[in-house]
């Protein structure tokens, strides 16, 4: 607490390393990995936390709220699926092509979109999702509306397919570490500060010599490439893909809502959002099944409304508020801790 630099290295990062270590050894704990539904929920939390974190680069740190990330997600997913299903090879070349294509598409659509601001930008990204969704639905080469179904193939790293949840669990953890690692690195890097400067005020940032167009474009490209990587996991896990699974507006909104729910522009936010939303979604679905169609989304809608109204800084904001209150109480004297 005395030395802030020391605190940053051994405090924040140590907590993250500890978290990753705990998550990594969880499947080795007897009695954890044999409940495949619980494993499934954990895998989805890691996946959606990574997706939201990838979105967070552009939407949270750089302040450009995009509703179009499902396009990059879909391109990544289709890259892997095309290599495996259509060309019968390992997914690896498809993954690379898909990520590159997502980055390219991001740069191309950024050109008209970043000229727009506020609601016009948001609506433009919706329009892009709709265009890609409908094009993918009628594009015979990639399977059209029917999509691509994985054949039964050998499990392992070569095909990136496993028969057990444990394999996917570690795959998801690696994805999580990559995406969070990139964002953690950006946070401390000069580029991270550029992004925050653009978010706080584009004109001010430009007056200080920040090339805001370039910063936004780069943030978009990094975000898109990482989103495509998440799409790869999604398709390898589901073993099939069709346009409505990946390139829908609902999927695009998930990126935004999880991050906003957790706290946009923070490293912890996407994980917090996913850790709340995904269990809610999966357990309500498991509990009510087909009868309770939509109950999870009704609850989720309510949470979103309340969160935006009451606590725009998200779950992270709630914790920060509590921590500040405790610090304040401590400052006044230990006796007041119990009486907020």
């Amino acid at each position: 607490m005395v030395n802030p630099t020391k605190n940053r290295i051994f405090g924040k990062d140590a907590v993250w390393l500890l978290f990753i270590a705990v998550v990594a050894v969880l499947p080795l704990v007897p009695g954890f990995a044999d409940n495949s539904f619980r494993m499934h929920v954990f895998i989805l939390i890691l996946l959606y936390a990574s997706m939201a974190q990838a979105w967070n680069i552009l939407g949270g740190y750089c302040g450009q709220v995009s509703f179009g990330h499902s396009v990059f997600f879909g391109i990544g997913a289709y890259g892997a699926a095309m290599a495996l299903v259509t060309y019968g090879t390992a997914p690896w070349p498809g993954i690379l092509i898909g990520m590159a294509a997502a980055g390219l598409v991001a740069v191309v659509i950024s050109y008209p979109c970043f000229k727009l601001s506020g609601h016009y930008f948001a609506i433009a990204t919706f329009a892009i999702v709709e265009i890609f969704f409908r094009m993918f639905q009628v594009w015979d080469w990639i399977g059209g509306a029917i999509g691509l179904d994985y054949p039964v193939i050998e499990e392992g790293l070569w095909n990136l397919v496993w028969y057990s949840k444990t394999g996917y669990y570690y795959f998801a953890l690696i994805l999580f570490v990559i995406v969070f690692g990139v964002v953690r690195w950006l946070e401390g890097h000069r580029f991270g500060y550029y992004m925050k400067a653009v978010r706080e005020g584009q004109e001010t940032a430009e007056s200080l010599g920040v090339n805001s167009a370039m910063v936004k474009l780069t943030a978009m490209a990094i975000s898109a490439v990482l989103t495509a990587l998440c799409g790869v996991f999604f398709v390898q896990y589901n073993l099939r893909v069709d346009p409505s699974m990946v390139i829908s507006l609902d999927m695009a909104m998930k990126f935004v809502l999880i991050t906003i729910l957790g706290g946009a522009g923070t490293l912890l936010g996407p994980l917090a959002g996913a850790a709340v939303l995904i269990p809610l979604q999966e357990y309500t679905r498991a509990f009510w099944g087909g009868l309770g169609g939509g109950i999870d989304l009704i609850i989720f809608g309510l949470i979103i409304i309340l969160m935006v109204i009451k606590q725009p800084a998200g779950i992270v904001g709630i914790f920060q508020g509590i921590r500040q209150r405790i610090a304040k109480a401590r400052g006044k004297g230990g006796a007041e801790i119990g009486t907020p």
Partner: peptide, 26 residues
């Protein structure tokens, strides 16, 4: 949502949209 970030109202009403849509679905 007045006085909150510019997209706050959009996100809040999106939550409402989810609520209404899934209520009708249900």
């Amino acid at each position: 949502t007045v006085g909150k970030p510019p997209l706050a109202a959009l996100l809040a009403t999106f939550g409402l949209a989810m609520l209404i849509k899934n209520f009708c679905l249900n």
